[in-house]
Design a protein around this nucleic acid. Sequence first.
RNA 1: GCCCGCCUGGCGGAAUGGCAGACGCAGCGGACUUAAAAUCCGCAGCCGUACGGCGUGGGGGUUCGAAUCCCCCGGCGGGCACCA
Length: 872
Amino acid sequence: MSETLTETGPRYDFRAAEPRWQAAWAERGCFHVADVPADDKPKYYVLEMFPYPSGKIHMGHVRNYTLGDVVARYKRARGYSVLHPMGWDAFGLPAENAARERRIHPAKWTWENIATMRAELQRMGLSLDWSREFATCDPAYYGHQQKLFLDFLRAGLAERKESWVNWDPADGTVLANEQVIDGRGWRSGALVEKKQLSQWFLRITKYAPELLSALDRLERWPERVRLMQERWIGRSEGARLRFALAEPEPGIAEVEVYTTRPDTLYGMSFLALAPEHPLATAVAARDAGAAAFIAESRRMGTSEAAIETAEKRGYDTGLRVRHPFVKGAVFPVWIANFVLMEYGTGAIFGCPAHDQRDLDFARKYKLRVLPVVLPPGADADRFTVADEAYVGPGTIYHSGFMDGLDVEAGKRRAIEELERLGVGRGEVNWRLRDWGVSRQRYWGCPIPVIHCAACGVVPVPDEQLPVVLPDDVTFDRPGNPLDHHPTWKHVACPACGAPAQRETDTFDVFVDSSWYFARFCSPQAKEPVMRDAVDHWLPVDQYIGGIEHAILHLLYSRFFTRAMKDTGHVGIEEPFSGLFTQGMVTHESYRSASGLNGTWLYPEEVIRQPDGSAVHRDSGEPVVVGRVEAMSKSKRNTVDPEAIIARYGADTARWFILSDNPPERDMEWTEAGVAGAFRFTQRVFRLAEGLGGAAIGDTPDRFGTAALALRRATHRTIAAMTEALEGFAFNVAVARLYELANAVADSERVPAEPGLQWARHEAVRMLARLVSPMMPHLAEEVHARLAPDGRLVAELPWPEADPGLLAAETVTIAVQVMGKLRGTVEMPPDAPRDAVLAAARGEPNVMRVLEGKRIVKEVYVPNRIVNFVTGD
RNA sequence: GCCCGCCUGGCGGAAUGGCAGACGCAGCGGACUUAAAAUCCGCAGCCGUACGGCGUGGGGGUUCGAAUCCCCCGGCGGGCACCA
């Protein structure tokens, strides 16, 4: 392919042009904005999720940042003052893994990656304000994060508490649920234990009601993401109630449970405790069987796979509880592996007839199954529950004072009764848990507190921030290098001066990304944010990133913004008023047909044959073409953006990635598609070359038919592009530009006529400006040739369509008979109904079809369609 | 299991109640060329020589008119999943 670039005809030399225009934009400061602008332009903040500096950019980045750049360039042209920054989500485990595996310091590894990736992004020609760049691993960033944490701590939004965690005994670290695979640590392979540890938590649950209710107001968020967050927050209405033990344990007289079905209390068969429940622990202290059961449950771990395959199992403690409503009735207390300590109270009452889990459990241990909700139309004497619990609506029976009520009324009545008896009350419960942010890792933001034997937890005084990570650490031992460091953690207590210890845990990396969008508004500020700057720029008007962050990052950021509001840092609650989630970039995968059971092959190793088959580039051996799937290193179906940009240029890569399909869907990267995009760049350039430069006179007085038609096409394209870009329909925008280019090419084959050359010139000038959000370098190159006014396209306003040229000269009206298309008629726009109907009736083919038929109805939609409805 | 989304030519897709298949990719034919590449011109949903018929996963409905709205079924993809 590279040979063809030097072939005949005028060629757009992107290799020279792209760096030249990038330099011109930088020199003119086209994309720079002030923290607090002096002008009165409306603001627009467009942000793409900042990258983790893993080493090189990948196609997902190219897609993400191209989408954002189209928006940024378009909005700038529309007269907005656009904030479009870039930075680095630079803390994280891969850096530590590199340190362990390759003996390179995490900081060195990270900063080298940043340098590489910054250069790659700059070659894409993104309209970024690079003066705002920062990396979260820089103390100049994370020091402010420590300040925010201390403010949260003072405001009661951060706390230290005991919690159950996944503990990897081999690596000596806490693992996230996602890092536990089949009950084993993902790195060490050791069996993960549940362990109670003292950890830092951010009180996201305080905002649960608001985080839920505000979702309705995020109108420019995908419905899907809002639904996912809604489920994650998980509001449920029910009751909390206490069951008295028939024979109290020492120090424990009652058990509290949470239920959403207080209406089914009469159907109770048992009470079940989570294995970690304090009463279970108390029983285990004197009952070896209980202790063994609890130990076994703990070993099962918390991985999804373990939960899914786990059979419901229980252990009867021998204890009994009294029913709150039925005098004298007692029920057994079990310890059960399916009860979660983390949700509700860690104990449930079991009603097998109306809960599937309780039913499974009851069948296994031969416990009573008593229906208390009768489905509509069912016979009370004959209705039974076999192996499927009844969870639908119905009438309550077998339930004393609740008999005859429907389910909803029964819930209300049961809560009233619990409150009257003083044993319970209505309660709203949430699935959302507080956010545990402690990590036993080196490459993260140190948590700025000191542990003093006398004073307890003492915050690091603000003036001692930042607490900087020490450089001289070793990775030769498992566990946290900060903990092993000889001196770092030994400090004087800021309160009493006695020897004390620094906290050696660091923050979860999701903390870093929960406020970076705010820092971008004033990246040099002495405080976490400059209030005037965030008041001006926030919220982010358009946020763009992958759907994989639908819950964690986006929910944490929503929480952080609220917490920052309550601590006086910002004045808003929602960080992102618009959210767009892009699809993945996919590619065919290839395996060698022979070899060691078919090793994966890189796309560049494979040659597709004309007949659709594929062979290996070097060996010529057959290659099996596999599924089209997300690019991944393990499947080797990746394409390196650097190689594409070197071979075809940044504009081609950007154009193809936008043109293939709607941006929210997964796209398939294909060589043919890239080649097609490249052809278009050359074609646009040739159209401009064909016009012979800038020499063109004033607007002519008169235009011939073809000239006028071309002008109409140009101005219709301006209008269509505007609409497509506003609606994120970038693939449609691309199509409209192909059409305009085709129209210009067509005009070259009609005989010369007044104004035609001028109309062509206008068309190509407009084409350059319309294409500029997508192919900014080519746009500048063409503009410089045709309109050398000393201005850059990047500085020009968006073209305005001439309303006089938008109206079509004639409209084509479809003529149907009984809903079937039988012909078309050309009419002036907005022609009178009678004239259109007459013309329609006179259309030869329509006449033929209508012959001998009686028209009973004539439907006319102006400028669009006529439909004749015939009788008989 | 629950929830959500999607299903249109060989492929990506366009059209969100009014001419289905814009635009691109792949393909076919032609021009140019010694030849190829590049470029340019043209063809192109399926069936049929044609008038025409059929056609947006399948079936039904609403409407003058349905890819689009409603109901049922099927397929594919994604998310959540012992949350009491």
